[in-house]
Write a protein that binds this DNA or RNA. Structure first.
Length: 465
RNA sequence: GGCGCCUUCGUCUAGCGGCCUAGGACGGUAGGUUCUCAACCUACAAAUCACGGGUUCGAAUCCCGUAGGCGCCA
């Protein structure tokens, strides 16, 4: 049974876009293999905990259509799925490790550790725990009253092999590993202890995570061996980069996944774009459905170079999806978008009429308002000066008033006729009319827009100037 | 600094020893269409396959070095 997971920490506003990428790959791999996709919340860092982050992470995942099969909210057979609720498990197993001789109690004071560090740095050595407490006789009953941590007893002179699905054998020298703290003095586990225990107990078959974890994998391997557990498959994904090639960060890019939704990106458009990071469709298709992705995806085809996240291509892809969307569906998406993110209740019938006009013009749902605001409100300002065009505008509305069959085509014909009669170039003529009606120089097709606005309203707008 | 990963057009990538005078997509440029903007169509520019050595009849593709980038630890 394939079981995959993501293990986000609720230490930011929301789900990071890099986590969304990891989630996508985990989700797809689980679905492809008829397995389960799990979300575990790693909330053991109490200082950096952000209130409400867990809820937002889970909600964002759902918004993108990557609903987990097991998570802290819906539970599952291997819960709890929140690390802060699993402390006893970690504590019990950590002490067990001490008893088995793979870990030890350490009672070194902060002062001693600080001195040690300073000394090592002065001697240009790598700052590391010196193993002072390694041979301390374990007297846990006595120790429990004192401040202590549990450290991993890293074996000396050993080659630790990480079998990575994408990189093959990656060999680490155990002498470069620190005697990692497993259990902190406050009883909380460190990341390394908790992640190994949870992945094993939750029966995770494939650990698919970002490359930044590759360096700590040998510690995890040591723990799997110490516990006598079977190792899962490791697969370290490329890390998404900023345009300057550094790790994707909020300094240089919007990184919260929900930001893209708030901007009017369609969930699957974002995921489709993400799918193309480090992977390409066998037929070099750019646009494909989730179902198709699941069908043709293989973990082994992933590339390991960290790709730069390109917002421009994302926008193109979103535009492609908007153009492909059925009119009625797009209408609903626009309505929902403005209601949810901008607290605007747009009239459904009017939006419905405008959709065909803007479908191939907008790239994001939020572009809709830029194009269509004038349908809902009269222009408050005009992008070109019309004060000396009043005579012309008068002739126009007088002409418009004669039209009985208020259809785009008729309007167009009449206007072309009038422009010719007044000996004004069509381009110029329509630009003046456009700005007079909409306030803007860039708009949906004018004749069609005027048809939607209605004769009375158009005439009013021209008279008003 | 130590350890590890990586290196094909600006970007995402195809390529797994001959099909490569390196293909596609985004973006760019030029043109067409056009009431603006898009969309659409056509064409063009863009990688001496990081660099240097091997191996081979033949290398973007295999091997070794170097440089650079990134990550982790500190």
């Amino acid at each position: 049974m394939v079981r995959t997971r993501i293990a986000p920490s609720p230490t930011g506003e929301d789900l990071h876009i890099g986590n969304l990428y990891t989630a996508l790959i985990n989700f797809v791999w689980a679905k492809k293999n008829k397995g389960k996709f799990i979300v575990r919340i790693e909330d053991t860092d109490r200082q950096r905990l952000v209130k409400g982050a867990e809820e937002r992470i889970l909600q964002t995942l759902k918004d993108f259509g990557l609903s987990p099969d097991e998570d802290p909210q819906k539970g599952g057979p291997y819960g709890p799925y929140r690390q802060s609720e699993r402390l006893e498990i970690y504590q019990k197993l950590a002490h067990q490790l001490v008893e088995k001789g793979y870990a030890y109690y350490c009672t070194c004071s902060k002062e001693r550790l600080d001195d040690l560090r300073k000394k090592q740095i002065a001697e240009k050595k790598i700052p590391r725990y010196d193993g002072h407490c390694r041979n301390l006789k374990s007297q846990s009953s006595k120790l429990k009253t004192k401040n202590y941590v549990i450290r991993l007893k890293v074996p000396r002179d050993r080659k630790i092999v990480v079998e990575d699905l994408l990189r093959g054998r990656v060999v680490f020298d155990s002498n470069n590993l620190d005697d990692q703290i497993l259990l902190k003095s406050d009883g909380y586990p460190t990341y390394h202890l908790a992640v190994v225990i949870d992945d094993c107990l939750m029966k995770i078959s494939h650990i698919i995570r970002a490359e930044e974890w590759l360096s700590s994998t040998p510690k995890h391997i040591l723990l799997y061996e110490a516990f006598g557990w079977e190792k899962p498959v490791f697969c370290h994904l490329p890390i998404l980069r900023n345009p300057d090639r550094s790790k994707l960060s909020k300094r240089k890019n919007p990184v919260w996944a929900s930001w893209y939704l708030k901007q009017g990106y369609l969930p699957w458009a974002v995921l489709n774009y993400l799918a193309l990071m480090g992977w390409s469709h066998p037929q070099e298709k750019e646009i494909f459905s989730l179902e198709e992705f699941i069908e043709v995806f293989d973990l082994k085809d992933l590339q390991v170079v960290g790709p730069a996240f390109d917002p421009v291509k994302l926008e193109w892809m979103n535009g492609e999806y908007i153009r492909k969307t059925q009119n009625s569906k797009l209408k609903t998406q626009i309505l929902d978008f403005y209601k949810k993110y901008q607290q605007k209740n747009l009239p459904e019938n009017l939006v419905e009429k405008t959709v065909p006009l803007i479908q191939e013009r907008i790239k994001k749902l939020s572009d809709y308002w830029d194009y269509c605001q004038f349908f809902f409100e009269r222009p408050k300002e005009y992008q070109i000066d019309l004060s000396n065009k009043k005579e012309l505008l008068k002739k126009i509305y007088q002409e418009l008033e004669t039209i009985s069959d208020w259809k785009a085509q008729t309007i167009g014909e009449k206007m072309v006729y009038l422009a010719k009669k007044l000996n004004i170039k069509a381009g110029e003529f329509f630009m003046i009319l456009r700005v007079a009606i909409t306030g803007k120089k860039i708009t949906p097709p004018l004749n069609e827009s005027m048809e939607i606005l209605g004769k009375e309203e158009c005439v009013k707008r021209l008279k008003f100037i």
